[in-house]
Structure formats: structure tokens, C-alpha cells
């Protein structure tokens, strides 16, 4: 069991982060490349000023007309994304392992608070799932891969909470937590989760076209 733990927390974690970074670079590069081949003039229209203006405005909760039309989804989605990165970086166990491995330390959130946020994130994932069933306009574009991805996103949170509370066999749960998180990292560049990488690109493009060509706001 100790061998498995050391394998999963060491070499496999390195492999997952490496694939995530290289895969992300490849994904962005290949997307820009396809755009260039399909439409030569497209990239000429992208402006830093209008692109950033759009990204910033779409990063403020309830700032856009579309967000105000869907306040519940917007609220839950913003909470989910902020909580995802906050937990990843500030959960004490993560920070302690990084400090012991690399000698750099930073602020952590108290375990009790992290625990509550983790429960809320699991709730948000359930909300996303239910929404995909009950809203006709969403369920129309939903297939099983959406639910599979949602389960993959929820898995590190479920196993993290179970491990923290030491429910079930502890070592098994920590190992499952790390494995599911590593699977999620690897999946980001190659599945629809790549919206993390592509959302800024599409926003920048749409913002540029609306701002520079049509002279209107896109939010």
C-alpha cells in the first residue's frame, strides 16, 4: 500500500502535471493553427484592447446581459470555478505537501472551512447535473459524456472529503483522490474541459470583432 501511495503521490503526479501543461500548450497552438488555416484574415481582427475588455467584463459576476438572464446558473458557476482553484491551491494538505517537496509555503484556509467549501462544490456539481436533465434547452445538447465529465470533476472533491473525514479505508481513499485528480488534470486539454484554455481565446475573438468591427459591446 505504501508503494502505491508513493507512486501515485510522486511519479504519477509529475506525469499528470507534465501532460496537463504540454497538452494545454498543444491545444492552444493547434486551435490557433486551425483558425489560421481556415480563415487567414481572422487573426488580423484580434485586438488586445478589445479582447481584454471583453474578457474582463465577462469575468465580473452578473456583469453581462446573459448572466443576468440566468442568475442561478451564473451564481453557482462563478462559485464553482473560484472554489475549484481556491481549494486546489489553499487546502492545507496540498500546501503542506508542496512546502515539503519544494520548500515554498503560503497561506492556507483552515481545514474546517475547506471542508464546507468542498461540500458546496459537490452540491454545485449535482446542480449542474440536474440542470442538464430538467432544462429542455440544455438536455437537448447533452449526452452521456457530459455526465461522465461532471462525475470526473466531482470525484476529487468526493474522495478528498471522504479521506479528510477518514471514512472508508483511509489509504485507499487518499490514493483514489490523487488518481481521480490526476485523471482530471490529464483530461483538461483533451476534452470539453479545455474550455479553461479556449474560453479566453473565443472571448478575445468575439470581443475584438464586436469592439473593433461592429463598434458594440459584447456583454
Amino acid at each position: 500500500m505504501q508503494d502505491v501511495y508513493l507512486l501515485v503521490s510522486g511519479p504519477l503526479a509529475w506525469a499528470a502535471w507534465t501532460i496537463f501543461v504540454l497538452g494545454s500548450i498543444y491545444k492552444i497552438w493547434s486551435t490557433l493553427n486551425t483558425a489560421k488555416q481556415k480563415d487567414q484574415v481572422l487573426l488580423n481582427y484580434v485586438s488586445f484592447k478589445y479582447g481584454m475588455r471583453s474578457i474582463i467584463n465577462w469575468s465580473i459576476p452578473f456583469n453581462t446581459v446573459n448572466m443576468r438572464l440566468h442568475p442561478l446558473f451564473t451564481g453557482v458557476a462563478f462559485f464553482f470555478h473560484i472554489a475549484f482553484f481556491a481549494l486546489l491551491i489553499f487546502v492545507s494538505a496540498h500546501q503542506i505537501m508542496i512546502e515539503e517537496g519544494f520548500g515554498i509555503g503560503w497561506f492556507t484556509i483552515p481545514d474546517a472551512v475547506a471542508d464546507i467549501i468542498a461540500f458546496a462544490v459537490i452540491g454545485a456539481c449535482i446542480f449542474f447535473g440536474v440542470r442538464r436533465v430538467v432544462r429542455p434547452e440544455v438536455s437537448y445538447v447533452t449526452d452521456w459524456t457530459d455526465f461522465a465529465l461532471l462525475a470526473l470533476v466531482a470525484a476529487p472533491f468526493v474522495t478528498g472529503v471522504l479521506a479528510y473525514h477518514q471514512l472508508g479505508d483511509y489509504l485507499t481513499m487518499v490514493i483514489l483522490h490523487m488518481l481521480s485528480a490526476e485523471l482530471l488534470l490529464v483530461a483538461i486539454p483533451f476534452t470539453r474541459l479545455s474550455h479553461m484554455l479556449l474560453a479566453p481565446l473565443t472571448r478575445a475573438y468575439i470581443g475584438s470583432e464586436f469592439g473593433m468591427v461592429r463598434h458594440v459591446k459584447d456583454w
Binding site: Q2, Y5, Y170, L171
Partner: peptide, 12 residues
């Protein structure tokens, strides 16, 4: 880790 024996994960 060196002895390959004894606890290494937080909850152990």
C-alpha cells in the same frame, strides 16, 4: 520512506 515501513499519508 527510506525503510519502506511506517506511515506516510496524513491520516495514518
Amino acid at each position: 520512506v527510506e525503510k519502506k515501513k511506517g506511515p506516510v499519508a496524513c491520516g495514518e
